[in-house]
Nucleic acid binder design. Structure first.
Lengths: 193, 193
DNA sequence: ACCTGAACACCGTTCAAGT
DNA sequence: ACCTGAACACCGTTCAAGT
């Protein structure tokens, strides 16, 4: 007797999509294989078929998150118009998470849970930070025409950290307006164009 | 037969101290009543005697964290020397958490776990943010002699968010130097004195 | 190749029972 | 007043068993 079933690979993709949303909302520690499986329509032991441990799933979630983010960001540099629009688009990525049910950046959430993560997941989180910092260095040097010095690199990580912090505080407040006003304050002092 | 025992109230205080350290390191979701109790030398059901639920414990942890922080910060304003020293002392509070086994600000950690918290705990986290923002407004107006406008208030929340973000990123990196350099970058652009 | 049920040691919570 | 053991429904993980 057949029931409605998914195509090959769909279960895996559905688990990844649902898993990402859940980690962004509730974190790694609160992610339940049983609840995740139930949301997709399989049993928790099926999740273990794809990822032996929760850490393995989190590592792939972070890795994909970084890859997709990098592709989007590189696209921004190719269609470069002006520095203001470029940084607007960058900020928009983090704002979008808040727009989706007040969610966090996946890697910002995982960064907070660092001590609970297997080392491989910590590495993926730091790879995400690297991608952001490298992109910000490119964006800053293209915008200002300056060389990629250590000062620019520190400015880049400061911009990333500030935006992550704005997201964290706005999320706690439950008001996306707080995110917008904080970003505006950053720009007001000239942290980024 | 007597064994080594604590004085009245010592168990409660020991649970609070150990609980705070654990939430700052691992978060609310990963806090285990059984492990917490074992670390203090009682059974998990004893923890429930003091706090019916994990949320009740977290609410008191956040409330105490805020009160103690407020007392310290108010002391800084009383012994005010110059604006640079004042903000040095403010930043030092957040640096101290990283110095203690790479821990997070208690309320920064809880902010990330917002969706897992009972509403009363979310309120305590936001009370902590309020205390910080109010203090920063005082510090900014005393430092610059400006009036406490909406712009100053938004600057205050931006400073708080930026420092929380610096802590989050430095913690992920596992390098306190990243925190110092990020704070230096904030100051370089004039985010705070 | 993909999925499952049962078992294991964990978890927060409740509550009757101890002192 | 303070602490406990036992029970409950949860959790990640393992693994033999299904198709």
């Amino acid at each position: 007797m057949d029931t409605i079933s998914m195509n090959k690979g769909d279960v895996r993709e559905a688990l990844l999509a649902e898993g990402r949303r859940r980690v962004q909302a509730n974190g790694y520690s609160a992610l339940s294989f049983r609840e995740l499986a139930a949301a997709v329509g399989v049993k928790s032991s099926s999740v273990h078929y794809y990822w032996p441990t929760k850490g393995d799933l989190a590592a792939e979630l972070a890795s994909r998150y970084t890859s997709e983010g990098e592709i989007y960001l590189d696209g921004l540099l190719e269609t470069f118009e002006d520095e203001r629009t470029l940084f607007d688009s960058y900020v928009k990525v983090f704002r979008a998470a808040l727009e989706q049910d007040n969610r966090m950046c996946l890697c910002g959430m995982l960064a907070a849970e660092r001590d609970e993560l297997p080392p491989a997941v910590v590495d993926e989180v730091n790879a995400f930070i690297d991608v952001n910092v490298r992109w910000l260095v490119k964006a800053l040097t293209r915008a200002t025409g300056a060389k990629a010095t250590k000062t620019v690199s520190q400015r880049a990580i400061a911009i990333f950290a500030a935006i992550e912090g704005a997201q964290l505080v706005a999320r706690s407040r439950g008001e996306i307006r707080v995110f917008d006003e904080t970003v505006q304050a950053y720009r007001g002092v000239g942290l980024f164009p």
